[in-house]
């Protein structure tokens, strides 16, 4: 399958602070990849590197087989980009934006743009700087849909949006990307929004990738375990469990191991766990399980 985005051994620092070392991932054609991580783990940094707005310390990123810091005009034509905060030219109105962007994209489709604008009752003469955050997000979305790009890169698309606008945004994206075989890389702070949207996810921690899996695999295999024990939390083997917490004798922990495997590990480690309970997780719970609450 054709690879659309590829990052090899990407390393970046802000001053002395390491953002990642040797980050590797790729996105095949037609896949939707969610980049998840707490604040400051480098999601926006990665998007800036991919779009050539930041020079990485070392490593290489390619988009459509071109180096990301030096994309040709033809390749940029194939990439729809949503910058953090639904950034658009604030001095332009709807009509001016549509006219402006249409000149750059040969397969520009004005109908979906105006359809979305009329649905949201945004007047053609309304200027971006007089719009609400939700309206701005839909303008940015409408422009991306009209551009008819092969690759969509969306940085924190849910930022500042109420549930209605978020749902609308996701519905449109889902329909568009899945119907037309587009590839998408996106980040969001609201993990629950991504659960039914993304095919694969990368969970970033400070300086590294915690996990990179198809979303269904993560949701099927990563479980929360709860049990009551008088023993200390330190008795749990670190390599098998994530972000274990003990509260009044109850331990809550997360693991990729199955119920049977966990029972076996406990019996081998001499952990008393008669009350062991396993729970299936939502994407947000899985994210918390991997990255921790704090």
């Amino acid at each position: 399958m054709e690879t659309i985005i590829e990052c090899k051994n990407l390393t970046h620092y802000y001053g002395a602070r390491c953002i990642y070392t040797n980050l590797n991932f790729s996105i095949p054609k037609g896949k939707i990849l969610g980049l998840l991580g707490k604040n400051g783990t480098g999601k926006t940094t990665l998007i800036n590197i991919l779009m050539g707005f930041l020079k990485p310390h070392s490593g290489k990123c390619t988009i459509f087989n071109e180096p990301s810091h030096n994309l040709s005009a033809q390749t940029k034509q194939r990439i729809g980009l949503l910058l953090e905060g639904h950034l658009q030219y604030s001095f332009m109105n709807i009509e001016q934006l549509e006219r402006f962007y249409a000149a750059f994209y040969p397969s520009w489709r004005r109908e979906p743009f105006y359809e979305l604008m009329s649905k949201l009752k945004i007047a053609p003469g309304q200027r971006v700087n007089r719009m609400s955050c939700g309206q701005r997000s839909q303008v940015a979305l409408g422009l991306i849909l009209a551009q008819n790009a092969d690759l969509l890169i969306l940085d924190d698309f849910s930022m500042g949006l109420d549930p209605g606008y978020r749902r609308l945004f996701i519905d449109y994206l889902n329909q568009y990307v899945k119907a037309e075989g587009k590839t998408m890389l996106l980040t969001s702070h609201i993990i629950q929004d991504l659960e039914n949207l993304i095919d694969d996810c990368i969970v970033l921690d400070y300086g590294k990738i915690l996990t990179q899996l198809p979303t269904t695999e993560l949701l099927n295999n990563f479980k929360r375990y709860r049990f009551n024990t008088p023993q200390s939390i330190e008795a749990l083997p670190n390599e098998a469990f994530f972000n274990s917490e003990k509260n009044k004798g109850n331990i809550e922990t997360y693991s990729f191991f199955t119920h049977e495997e966990v029972k076996y590990i406990f019996s081998k480690s001499g952990i008393q766990s008669e009350s062991l309970m396993v729970e299936k997780l939502s994407l947000e719970d899985a994210f918390i399980g991997l990255t921790g609450k704090y």
């Binding site: 779009m51 050539g52 707005f53 005009a73 033809q74 940029k76 034509q77 990439i79 980009l81 910058l83 905060g85 950034l87 658009q88 030219y89 604030s90 001095f91 750059f104 994209y105």
Partner: peptide
Amino acid sequence: PELRNKSLRLSLHLPV
């Protein structure tokens, strides 16, 4: 206007 929120990135992403 291009400095606000680094809007210049929009211009530099144009296919030119």
